[in-house]
Write a protein that binds this DNA or RNA. Structure first.
Lengths: 129, 129
DNA sequence: ATTAGTGTATTAATACATTTAATACACTCT
DNA sequence: AGAGTGTATTAAATGTATTAATACACTAAT
Protein backbone atom coordinates (compact mmCIF):
# COMPACT_ATOMS: atom_id res chain seq x y z
CA UNK A 1 0.00 0.00 0.00
CA UNK A 2 2.73 2.47 0.89
CA UNK A 3 6.52 2.40 0.68
CA UNK A 4 8.98 3.83 3.20
CA UNK A 5 12.08 5.79 2.26
CA UNK A 6 14.92 4.65 4.48
CA UNK A 7 17.07 7.60 3.39
CA UNK A 8 14.44 9.96 4.78
CA UNK A 9 15.63 11.29 8.12
CA UNK A 10 12.14 11.89 9.42
CA UNK A 11 10.60 9.41 11.89
CA UNK A 12 8.86 6.42 10.33
CA UNK A 13 5.51 7.24 11.91
CA UNK A 14 5.66 10.67 10.31
CA UNK A 15 6.25 9.16 6.88
CA UNK A 16 3.30 6.84 7.36
CA UNK A 17 1.12 9.78 8.38
CA UNK A 18 2.18 11.72 5.30
CA UNK A 19 1.67 8.90 2.82
CA UNK A 20 -1.70 7.79 4.18
CA UNK A 21 -3.07 11.31 4.55
CA UNK A 22 -2.11 12.00 0.95
CA UNK A 23 -3.88 8.87 -0.24
CA UNK A 24 -6.96 9.97 1.68
CA UNK A 25 -6.85 13.57 0.43
CA UNK A 26 -6.35 12.40 -3.15
CA UNK A 27 -9.42 10.25 -2.88
CA UNK A 28 -7.54 7.03 -3.56
CA UNK A 29 -8.92 5.72 -0.29
CA UNK A 30 -12.68 6.10 -0.13
CA UNK A 31 -14.49 7.31 2.97
CA UNK A 32 -15.51 4.54 5.38
CA UNK A 33 -13.22 2.02 3.69
CA UNK A 34 -11.15 -0.12 6.03
CA UNK A 35 -7.47 0.60 6.53
CA UNK A 36 -4.89 -2.13 7.18
CA UNK A 37 -4.81 -3.26 10.80
CA UNK A 38 -2.02 -1.99 13.02
CA UNK A 39 -0.38 -5.40 13.05
CA UNK A 40 -0.75 -6.23 9.36
CA UNK A 41 0.62 -2.88 8.21
CA UNK A 42 3.49 -3.25 10.67
CA UNK A 43 4.37 -6.61 9.14
CA UNK A 44 3.91 -5.22 5.64
CA UNK A 45 6.39 -2.40 6.32
CA UNK A 46 8.72 -4.54 8.44
CA UNK A 47 8.18 -2.20 11.33
CA UNK A 48 7.01 -2.40 14.94
CA UNK A 49 3.25 -2.28 15.59
CA UNK A 50 3.81 0.54 18.08
CA UNK A 51 5.13 2.71 15.28
CA UNK A 52 2.01 2.16 13.18
CA UNK A 53 -0.20 2.76 16.17
CA UNK A 54 1.46 6.08 16.72
CA UNK A 55 0.88 7.02 13.08
CA UNK A 56 -2.78 6.00 13.27
CA UNK A 57 -3.26 7.95 16.49
CA UNK A 58 -1.91 11.03 14.73
CA UNK A 59 -4.11 10.45 11.70
CA UNK A 60 -7.14 10.12 13.95
CA UNK A 61 -6.14 13.29 15.78
CA UNK A 62 -6.02 15.13 12.45
CA UNK A 63 -9.39 13.77 11.34
CA UNK A 64 -8.18 11.52 8.53
CA UNK A 65 -9.59 8.34 10.06
CA UNK A 66 -11.86 7.08 12.80
CA UNK A 67 -11.43 4.03 14.98
CA UNK A 68 -13.83 1.37 16.12
CA UNK A 69 -12.26 -0.75 18.83
CA UNK A 70 -12.23 -4.40 17.90
CA UNK A 71 -13.15 -3.64 14.30
CA UNK A 72 -10.39 -1.49 12.88
CA UNK A 73 -9.51 1.91 11.45
CA UNK A 74 -11.61 3.51 8.73
CA UNK A 75 -11.14 6.42 6.36
CA UNK A 76 -12.99 9.53 7.55
CA UNK A 77 -15.13 11.76 5.37
CA UNK A 78 -13.47 14.81 3.85
CA UNK A 79 -15.49 17.11 6.10
CA UNK A 80 -13.45 15.82 9.02
CA UNK A 81 -10.08 16.94 7.68
CA UNK A 82 -10.91 19.58 5.06
CA UNK A 83 -10.86 22.55 7.40
CA UNK A 84 -7.69 21.74 9.30
CA UNK A 85 -5.88 20.62 6.17
CA UNK A 86 -6.82 23.82 4.38
CA UNK A 87 -5.38 26.09 7.06
CA UNK A 88 -2.18 24.05 7.23
CA UNK A 89 -1.78 24.16 3.48
CA UNK A 90 -2.54 27.88 3.35
CA UNK A 91 0.05 28.63 6.03
CA UNK A 92 2.66 26.62 4.14
CA UNK A 93 1.83 28.49 0.97
CA UNK A 94 2.03 31.90 2.64
CA UNK A 95 5.40 31.01 4.15
CA UNK A 96 6.74 29.76 0.82
CA UNK A 97 5.55 32.89 -0.94
CA UNK A 98 7.10 35.18 1.65
CA UNK A 99 10.45 33.47 1.32
CA UNK A 100 10.18 33.53 -2.45
CA UNK A 101 9.61 37.26 -2.48
CA UNK A 102 12.28 37.80 0.16
CA UNK A 103 14.80 35.92 -1.95
CA UNK A 104 14.02 38.15 -4.90
CA UNK A 105 11.79 35.94 -7.02
CA UNK A 106 9.68 38.05 -9.34
CA UNK A 107 5.91 37.97 -9.13
CA UNK A 108 5.88 36.95 -12.78
CA UNK A 109 7.97 33.87 -11.99
CA UNK A 110 5.53 32.92 -9.28
CA UNK A 111 2.54 33.39 -11.58
CA UNK A 112 4.30 31.20 -14.11
CA UNK A 113 4.72 28.40 -11.61
CA UNK A 114 1.10 28.74 -10.48
CA UNK A 115 -0.04 28.40 -14.08
CA UNK A 116 2.21 25.39 -14.50
CA UNK A 117 0.76 23.63 -11.48
CA UNK A 118 -2.85 24.45 -12.30
CA UNK A 119 -2.46 23.49 -15.94
CA UNK A 120 -0.68 20.19 -15.44
CA UNK A 121 -3.43 17.56 -15.68
CA UNK A 122 -3.22 15.40 -12.58
CA UNK A 123 0.38 14.71 -11.80
CA UNK A 124 -0.26 13.01 -8.47
CA UNK A 125 3.27 12.88 -7.11
CA UNK A 126 6.74 14.20 -7.82
CA UNK A 127 9.54 12.00 -9.07
CA UNK A 128 11.68 11.31 -6.01
CA UNK A 129 14.90 10.25 -7.76
CA UNK B 1 21.16 40.10 17.44
CA UNK B 2 18.87 37.08 17.30
CA UNK B 3 16.49 35.45 19.74
CA UNK B 4 15.91 31.74 20.24
CA UNK B 5 12.49 30.15 20.65
CA UNK B 6 12.71 27.55 23.38
CA UNK B 7 9.32 26.10 22.42
CA UNK B 8 10.65 25.35 18.97
CA UNK B 9 11.42 21.66 18.76
CA UNK B 10 14.07 22.07 16.10
CA UNK B 11 17.76 21.93 17.08
CA UNK B 12 19.24 25.20 18.28
CA UNK B 13 21.87 25.28 15.53
CA UNK B 14 19.10 25.03 12.96
CA UNK B 15 17.30 28.01 14.45
CA UNK B 16 20.53 30.00 14.38
CA UNK B 17 21.05 29.06 10.74
CA UNK B 18 17.52 30.13 9.88
CA UNK B 19 17.64 33.47 11.69
CA UNK B 20 21.06 34.50 10.44
CA UNK B 21 20.40 33.43 6.85
CA UNK B 22 17.22 35.47 6.89
CA UNK B 23 19.06 38.53 8.17
CA UNK B 24 21.59 38.06 5.39
CA UNK B 25 18.99 37.52 2.68
CA UNK B 26 17.00 40.54 3.85
CA UNK B 27 20.08 42.68 3.56
CA UNK B 28 20.07 43.62 7.23
CA UNK B 29 23.60 42.27 7.40
CA UNK B 30 25.79 43.81 4.72
CA UNK B 31 28.26 41.78 2.68
CA UNK B 32 31.73 41.54 4.22
CA UNK B 33 30.48 42.77 7.58
CA UNK B 34 31.76 40.85 10.58
CA UNK B 35 29.51 38.40 12.36
CA UNK B 36 29.70 37.77 16.13
CA UNK B 37 32.48 35.39 17.08
CA UNK B 38 31.62 31.79 17.92
CA UNK B 39 32.28 32.39 21.59
CA UNK B 40 30.57 35.77 21.94
CA UNK B 41 27.38 34.63 20.20
CA UNK B 42 27.41 31.50 22.35
CA UNK B 43 27.53 33.63 25.48
CA UNK B 44 24.91 36.00 24.07
CA UNK B 45 22.47 33.13 23.48
CA UNK B 46 23.45 31.23 26.64
CA UNK B 47 24.48 28.28 24.54
CA UNK B 48 27.57 26.13 24.01
CA UNK B 49 30.18 27.39 21.53
CA UNK B 50 30.02 24.03 19.73
CA UNK B 51 26.40 24.69 18.84
CA UNK B 52 27.24 28.05 17.26
CA UNK B 53 30.17 26.52 15.43
CA UNK B 54 27.89 23.93 13.92
CA UNK B 55 25.50 26.66 12.79
CA UNK B 56 28.32 28.69 11.26
CA UNK B 57 29.68 25.61 9.49
CA UNK B 58 26.27 25.07 7.93
CA UNK B 59 25.98 28.72 6.95
CA UNK B 60 29.39 28.57 5.30
CA UNK B 61 28.39 25.37 3.50
CA UNK B 62 25.32 27.15 2.13
CA UNK B 63 27.30 30.19 1.02
CA UNK B 64 25.91 32.71 3.51
CA UNK B 65 29.27 33.51 5.07
CA UNK B 66 32.99 33.00 4.64
CA UNK B 67 35.56 32.33 7.31
CA UNK B 68 39.02 33.73 7.86
CA UNK B 69 40.82 31.74 10.50
CA UNK B 70 41.98 33.91 13.34
CA UNK B 71 39.89 36.86 12.16
CA UNK B 72 36.28 35.76 12.23
CA UNK B 73 33.23 35.03 10.11
CA UNK B 74 31.99 37.50 7.53
CA UNK B 75 28.80 37.90 5.53
CA UNK B 76 29.17 36.59 1.98
CA UNK B 77 28.00 38.41 -1.15
CA UNK B 78 24.55 37.54 -2.45
CA UNK B 79 26.08 35.83 -5.48
CA UNK B 80 27.31 33.10 -3.16
CA UNK B 81 23.89 32.06 -1.89
CA UNK B 82 21.47 33.45 -4.51
CA UNK B 83 21.46 30.40 -6.77
CA UNK B 84 21.13 27.71 -4.09
CA UNK B 85 18.61 29.74 -2.12
CA UNK B 86 16.50 30.31 -5.19
CA UNK B 87 16.22 26.63 -6.04
CA UNK B 88 15.36 25.75 -2.46
CA UNK B 89 12.71 28.43 -2.30
CA UNK B 90 11.29 27.43 -5.67
CA UNK B 91 11.04 23.79 -4.63
CA UNK B 92 9.25 24.77 -1.42
CA UNK B 93 6.85 26.92 -3.40
CA UNK B 94 6.10 24.18 -5.93
CA UNK B 95 5.45 21.70 -3.13
CA UNK B 96 3.16 24.12 -1.31
CA UNK B 97 1.23 24.86 -4.49
CA UNK B 98 0.81 21.17 -5.31
CA UNK B 99 -0.59 20.48 -1.88
CA UNK B 100 -2.83 23.51 -2.08
CA UNK B 101 -4.33 22.30 -5.34
CA UNK B 102 -4.57 18.75 -4.08
CA UNK B 103 -6.49 19.91 -1.03
CA UNK B 104 -8.95 21.70 -3.26
CA UNK B 105 -7.85 25.30 -2.95
CA UNK B 106 -9.05 27.32 -5.93
CA UNK B 107 -6.60 29.04 -8.22
CA UNK B 108 -8.36 32.29 -7.45
CA UNK B 109 -7.64 31.87 -3.74
CA UNK B 110 -3.99 31.33 -4.54
CA UNK B 111 -3.86 34.39 -6.78
CA UNK B 112 -5.44 36.38 -3.99
CA UNK B 113 -2.75 35.33 -1.54
CA UNK B 114 -0.03 36.08 -4.08
CA UNK B 115 -1.43 39.58 -4.51
CA UNK B 116 -1.58 40.01 -0.77
CA UNK B 117 2.06 39.04 -0.31
CA UNK B 118 3.32 41.11 -3.21
CA UNK B 119 1.26 44.13 -2.21
CA UNK B 120 2.12 44.15 1.49
CA UNK B 121 4.85 46.76 1.79
CA UNK B 122 7.76 45.07 3.55
CA UNK B 123 6.45 42.99 6.37
CA UNK B 124 9.77 41.40 7.19
CA UNK B 125 8.65 38.69 9.57
CA UNK B 126 5.50 36.95 10.72
CA UNK B 127 4.07 37.39 14.19
CA UNK B 128 5.19 34.30 16.09
CA UNK B 129 2.67 34.39 18.94
C1' DA C 1 57.75 37.69 21.68
C1' DT C 2 53.73 38.00 24.38
C1' DT C 3 48.89 38.43 24.84
C1' DA C 4 44.21 38.29 23.46
C1' DG C 5 40.87 37.03 20.25
C1' DT C 6 39.66 34.19 16.56
C1' DG C 7 38.22 29.51 14.12
C1' DT C 8 38.71 24.49 14.49
C1' DA C 9 38.94 19.74 16.38
C1' DT C 10 38.39 16.13 19.75
C1' DT C 11 36.49 13.44 23.47
C1' DA C 12 33.24 12.40 27.12
C1' DA C 13 28.88 12.79 29.36
C1' DT C 14 24.05 13.82 29.44
C1' DA C 15 19.39 14.33 27.64
C1' DC C 16 15.82 13.33 24.59
C1' DA C 17 13.13 11.12 20.78
C1' DT C 18 12.56 7.15 17.95
C1' DT C 19 12.12 2.50 17.57
C1' DT C 20 11.97 -2.21 18.91
C1' DA C 21 10.42 -5.86 21.95
C1' DA C 22 7.42 -8.39 24.81
C1' DT C 23 3.34 -8.46 27.00
C1' DA C 24 -1.35 -7.73 28.57
C1' DC C 25 -6.16 -6.22 28.26
C1' DA C 26 -10.77 -5.07 26.14
C1' DC C 27 -13.62 -5.30 22.34
C1' DT C 28 -16.00 -7.47 17.92
C1' DC C 29 -17.25 -10.93 14.92
C1' DT C 30 -17.91 -15.78 13.74
C1' DA D 1 -14.15 -20.25 22.48
C1' DG D 2 -11.14 -18.36 19.13
C1' DA D 3 -9.25 -15.13 15.93
C1' DG D 4 -8.65 -10.51 14.80
C1' DT D 5 -8.95 -5.90 16.23
C1' DG D 6 -7.36 -1.41 18.95
C1' DT D 7 -4.95 0.10 23.13
C1' DA D 8 -1.63 0.42 27.03
C1' DT D 9 2.58 -0.46 29.49
C1' DT D 10 7.39 -1.25 30.46
C1' DA D 11 12.12 -1.97 29.17
C1' DA D 12 15.99 -1.75 26.17
C1' DA D 13 18.65 -0.07 22.02
C1' DT D 14 19.80 3.45 18.98
C1' DG D 15 20.72 8.02 17.14
C1' DT D 16 20.96 13.01 17.55
C1' DA D 17 21.50 17.34 20.09
C1' DT D 18 23.71 19.55 23.50
C1' DT D 19 26.92 20.57 27.02
C1' DA D 20 31.53 20.45 28.88
C1' DA D 21 36.36 20.68 28.92
C1' DT D 22 40.25 20.97 26.43
C1' DA D 23 43.74 21.71 22.91
C1' DC D 24 45.72 23.62 18.64
C1' DA D 25 46.64 27.05 14.88
C1' DC D 26 46.11 31.48 13.15
C1' DT D 27 45.78 36.83 13.35
C1' DA D 28 46.19 41.31 15.37
C1' DA D 29 47.98 44.54 18.65
C1' DT D 30 51.38 45.78 21.93
Amino acid sequence: MIVLDLRDKRPIYEQVVEKLSQLIVCGVLEADSKLPSVRSLAIDLSVNPNTIQRAYAQLEQDGYLYTITGRGNFVAESSSWKKGRMTLVENDLRQALKEARQTGMSRESVESIVSEIWTDADKSNEGEE
